[in-house]
């Protein structure tokens, strides 16, 4: 299990390559890469991601441990950035490994659902027309119910 909450960019290929180098019991690896998205009608200049140092790591470690236990994962990796990010940059990388694909898929989905609304990050979007804090979505709360 490896977690990194960091300001600097990461190289997904290298991280995934490293993560893929596992023991021979591993039969499936699922990765998710979340990126900063712009909007053609109201182009994003940059995004500012704020977090709660200390609590962020604690919360994510708990979510990861839960995923490992629930899907009997062989390993999992989370990298989440904060600070100033421009469109096209990578924000988050989640990777899971298991014997069979279903567990790895579901665990990655679970990790992302909880990272969205339970890890203490807040995004602010800055566009030419001004800046605004991203509001949480009802749909993200509903998503968590799937895992009860």
């Amino acid at each position: 299990m490896k977690l990194s909450v960091q300001e600097e960019p990461f190289f997904p290929d290298g991280k995934i390559g490293h993560f893929s180098n596992q023991n021979q019991e591993t039969g499936a690896i699922v990765t998710f890469l979340g990126k900063v998205r712009s909007d053609l009608e109201n182009p994003l200049e940059y995004m500012l991601i704020e977090h709660y140092p200390g609590m962020t790591e604690k919360v994510i470690e708990k979510i990861m441990a839960e995923a490992v236990k629930r899907w009997n994962l062989i390993d999992c990796l989370v990298i989440h950035r904060y600070g100033k990010l421009t469109p096209g940059e990578d924000i988050v990388l989640v990777a899971t490994s298991s014997k069979h694909r279903r567990e790895a898929f579901e665990a990655a989905d679970y990790l992302m659902d909880f990272l969205k609304s339970r890890a203490p990050f807040w995004k602010k979007e800055v566009t030419q027309s001004g800046e605004s804090w991203v509001e949480s979505k009802e749909i993200d709360e509903v998503a968590l119910d799937r895992w009860k």
Binding site: H51, M55, K58, L115, P120, W122, K123, W133, V134
Partner: peptide, 29 residues
């Protein structure tokens, strides 16, 4: 609200707490 870095609610007991954080719903990922 988080009390000593654990999520709580407005009724949570804060006796003896060292750190209380207030924030809007989280938007990570």
């Amino acid at each position: 609200v988080a009390i000593d870095q654990e999520l709580g609610d407005m009724d949570s007991d804060i006796t003896g707490a060292e750190e209380i954080a207030f924030f809007p719903p989280m938007t990570g990922g």
